[in-house]
């Protein structure tokens, strides 16, 4: 059965106010552009959004901030976004800053059925407040809880119609783990192929994790910091 959908709007009809959504991407690299825009159109509010960053003012998850759809953000770095700062200072937005590796592992654990784990990351820092600690072999570790969500939104490079996914370069980032941690995972891709056309050895996300596949065209892929070197002749 094909998981290919014609519109993301339909696939997120079940999304409700107050839901938790997990969103792949690192900065603006490998973000699910079409799914974010669909959620902006849908207009649901009080969302908890789990993503490494929160976009920029006018792109990526910043679009949901503009619409005041996010109540709580779980992220490791939010410094690229002025609206974020305003809403945080106004008390319209809550933020749970989580070390990047801890965030990744919390999502991985969520998708893997592990409710919590211990890590040394954050011991003795403000993020340790209120968390259980345990000593293993003389070293102190923090307990961190897994994260799952109602929806997981990911961006891949290629998919087959069954929902197997292949990512491209560093646009992979959080996407494979996010894909595992949603009750409903929507993958948007640049190219779709028939079942059997992806080599099983090259698949990054097995189809079991993916409920819907959407093929987008003309991805914006905005670059946050374009740095180049001069061509050297000869």
């Amino acid at each position: 059965m094909s998981k290919v959908i014609e519109s993301i709007d339909q696939a997120i009809e079940g999304l409700k106010n107050g839901d938790t959504i997990l969103v792949g991407g690192f900065g603006l690299c490998g973000i699910p552009e079409f799914a974010i825009q669909a959620i902006a159109r849908r207009g649901v509010t009080d969302l908890t959004v789990v993503s490494n960053n929160c976009g920029v003012d006018d792109w990526g998850l910043g679009l949901l901030l503009q619409n005041k759809q996010i109540k709580r953000m779980i992220a490791s770095y939010v410094g690229e976004n002025k609206i974020f700062e305003q809403q945080l200072l106004n008390g319209e937005l809550e933020v749970e800053l989580t070390p990047q590796g801890t965030l990744a592992e919390r999502i991985r654990a969520g998708g893997a059925g592990i409710p919590s784990f211990y890590t040394a990351t954050g011991v003795g820092t403000p993020i340790a407040e209120g968390k259980e600690t345990k000593v293993f072999d003389g070293k102190t570790y923090l307990e961190e809880r897994a994260i799952t969500g109602e929806y997981a939104l990911v961006k891949a490079w290629k998919a087959d119609t069954l929902g197997n996914l292949v990512y491209r370069k560093t646009a992979r980032n959080f996407n494979p783990i996010v894909a595992t941690a949603g009750k409903i995972t929507i993958a948007e891709v640049e190219e779709i192929v028939e079942v059997g056309q992806l080599d099983p050895d090259e698949i990054h996300t097995p189809a079991v994790y993916v409920q819907h596949v959407y093929v987008g065209s003309n991805y914006v892929k905005r670059i946050e910091r374009k740095v180049t070197r001069q061509e050297v002749n000869g």
Partner: peptide, 15 residues
């Protein structure tokens, strides 16, 4: 000041 986040620094110092 606006807290931007720790990114991967807390993980790196322990790992």
């Amino acid at each position: 000041k606006m807290v931007k986040g720790m990114g991967g620094a807390m993980d790196l110092v322990h790992g």
